[in-house]
Simulated scan of single mutants.
Amino acid sequence: MSTAAQFPAGRPTVAEAYAACEAVTKEAARNFSYGIRLLPAEKRGALSAVYALARRLDDIGDGDLPEEAKFAGLAQVRAEVEELGTNSSDDPVFVALADAARRFPIPLEAFIELADGVESDVRGTTYDTFDDLVGYCRLVAGTIGRLSLGIFGSERATSHRDASGVADALGVALQQTNILRDVREDLLGGRIYLPRQELKAAGVELEVDATGRLGGPPDALIAYLRTSAQRAEEWYGRGLVLLDLLDRRSAACCGAMAGIYLRLNRRIKTDPSAVLDRRLALPGWEKAVVAARSLAGRPEMRAA
């Protein structure tokens, strides 16, 4: 469902716009909502506005519209972002985002990159090498890291020589986990993100059998998924340096969001067969535990 379809008609107040974005986040963010709720109100609203627009782009890419209509939808979002604050949009997402951009140094150009990443999904782009895949991950997830950093802020992050690169690396780590978790679901939808050269070298040809189980052949696939999860964990190690650059509440938010995905990644590394016939997910109580530990200053990476 498009996020816009959930909003009432008419130009909202800024407060109403933020409330609408927070409602979308609470309903659809799943893993991210556990971290966002740890932020103070002003940052929570701003990050919810960022998420709501990212979600809309996702909905365009994953929806049932014809390809040309998807391209048109992505172009419209790009135009709205480029004109943000100079027009009188009635769309709650853009009303909230325009206000957030006045309050925080949000790198709005990252939304253009995100739209480019979604467009590559619509085109069915595949990736030859891991470096190619990293480029895609930077578009669809590194952008979210950089957008979030603009809201988190801190003197330490501002003075760090590459805080933006660290945030980008954390996004790349999370996206690798997404890809490993969803490899079966993506294949059923006609998408393959894993690098072709790596699959070939590992002796893997992805397929789903008559029972709906992913294979190709199973032993080689399991070994490849385990190695890929280990590589993703190394990216978490680079990205979670970000926690040391943030204030307590922002670090708790970031640590909770990343910690949930890191737990998923470790499950895949320990038992790759868990993703061969279902979409792996943590139960709500376990996500809450990760969030509570992050708020207490004991994020997932450091507790391992």
Rank of each mutant, 00 (worst) to 15 (best):
R30G: 00
R248K: 12
D277K: 05
A169H: 05
E42Y: 04
A41N: 02
V95R: 13
A96C: 07
A96P: 07
R156Y: 04
D277M: 05
L139Q: 15
L133M: 13
D162S: 10
A101F: 08
Y136K: 04
G216Y: 03
R191G: 11
E119C: 05
Y193D: 07
Y127C: 14
T227C: 02
A173P: 09
A101K: 10
A23L: 05
C254W: 03
F104Y: 14
D121Q: 09
E198T: 14
A46N: 03
E155Q: 09
F32D: 04
T13L: 10
L295Y: 12
N31L: 02
A167R: 11
R156M: 08
A288T: 08
P12K: 12
G135K: 11
M301E: 11
T227L: 06
A98N: 06
I268F: 07
S159W: 01
V81L: 05
S294D: 13
D99R: 10
A28R: 15
L282M: 08
E233P: 04
Q230H: 12
G124I: 13
N87W: 00
A110E: 15
F7P: 05
T143M: 02
L47V: 14
A4C: 07
A201D: 14
T227R: 10
E300K: 05
E155N: 10
L108Y: 06
V290G: 11
G216N: 05
M1H: 15
A291T: 08
D58A: 10
L240Q: 14
G85M: 14
D90W: 04
L246A: 07
D116Y: 03
S154D: 11
G135N: 11
I112W: 04
L194S: 10
L280A: 08
L243G: 13
D59V: 08
V140E: 10
E155L: 11
R11W: 03
D247H: 13
A157F: 09
L242F: 06
E113T: 13
S164I: 04
F94K: 08
F94I: 09
L276W: 02
V172W: 03
P105R: 09
R249T: 11
L282T: 03
C254D: 06
Q176F: 15
A54H: 00
A5S: 14
L187C: 08
R278G: 03
G237S: 14
N178W: 10
F71P: 03
D62T: 09
E42L: 15
V241D: 10
I151Q: 06
V208F: 01
E185K: 11
G35I: 04
A220Y: 00
T143F: 02
A4D: 07
Y261C: 01
A258L: 06
E80A: 14
P218T: 08
T143L: 04
P218K: 06
Y34N: 12
G171W: 01
E16S: 06
